[in-house]
Design a binder for these strands. Structure first.
Lengths: 127, 127
DNA sequence: ACATCTCTACGAATGCCTTCGTATAGTTTC
DNA sequence: GAAACTATACGAAGGCATTCGTAGAGATGT
């Protein structure tokens, strides 16, 4: 198995479009990205990403359709783990704390965290 | 002012040593990093990092002493913001949730999060 | 003084990322 | 069927990251 590398910036930008729009053609991706992506640049990136296994390509039609190989969720988890390892001594908890301190957190997110915390405590008591 | 770029992997590895050990010579950094860093490689990196403003160099002695220009905290915050922007639509809260889901969180970290949450709610009620 | 050790500086090689231009082939329109 | 359009493939350039070798200045020990 190949060691998993994290997506580069340009690759991530493309993945974001694919996650938001679902399977897309080169043109659809390029247009969504606006001036940031000349058509052939996006095409080249998608070809490279296909080689890396970051996206899957449907070649049944002449105009190929690309989709993200891994879910947004899974990719986010990978990126978080990676950052935790590189800059937080492997501690996801400390990373989370920095994230909470770094920006305003919406009420909804606050509720989710409260819920998560309650879940954790429930497990603790249950054990 | 130059736009702030995030430290590369190799740069971050060196910064970790400087944060842990405090101001250090090239040799001290290289030895701490073990076989990962041939002496001149570390030297070159530190020279480049000096140019970028990532580290400060004390040249008063023949053997230069390097220290991190920014605190570990501040750098972590920058990296978290950066990742939030690139992969979480700018939402630090969602990043935090993924971090909490990604790895086991220690009891101490759990306590810190509980504390943070209480603080948030206190602010809300106080307002 | 000489050999030896340590330090910095510099250059160059390698490889990846990103971008874009051009070639080529299939499709549509008149 | 010719022209115009749209698609993929490919190559190459430019830049940055990373690594290491070598040169040369300064210190040290005998």
């Amino acid at each position: 198995m190949a060691a998993r590398r994290r997506p580069t910036d340009a690759e991530l930008a493309i993945l974001r479009v694919l996650w938001a729009q679902g399977p897309s053609t080169v043109r659809e991706v390029a247009e969504e990205m606006g001036r940031e992506g000349a058509y052939t640049t996006v095409l080249k990136l998608l070809q490279i990403m296909t080689g890396k296994g970051l996206v899957r390509r449907d070649e049944s039609a002449r105009t190929h359709v690309y989709r993200a190989a891994r879910s947004e969720r899974a990719t986010q988890r990978q990126l978080v783990r990676d950052l935790a390892d590189r800059a937080f001594g492997g501690s996801a908890g400390r990373l989370a704390m920095q994230a909470l301190a770094a920006r305003k957190v919406s009420p909804q997110e606050l509720a989710e965290i409260r819920e998560w915390l309650a879940e954790q405590e429930g497990q603790r008591e249950g054990a």
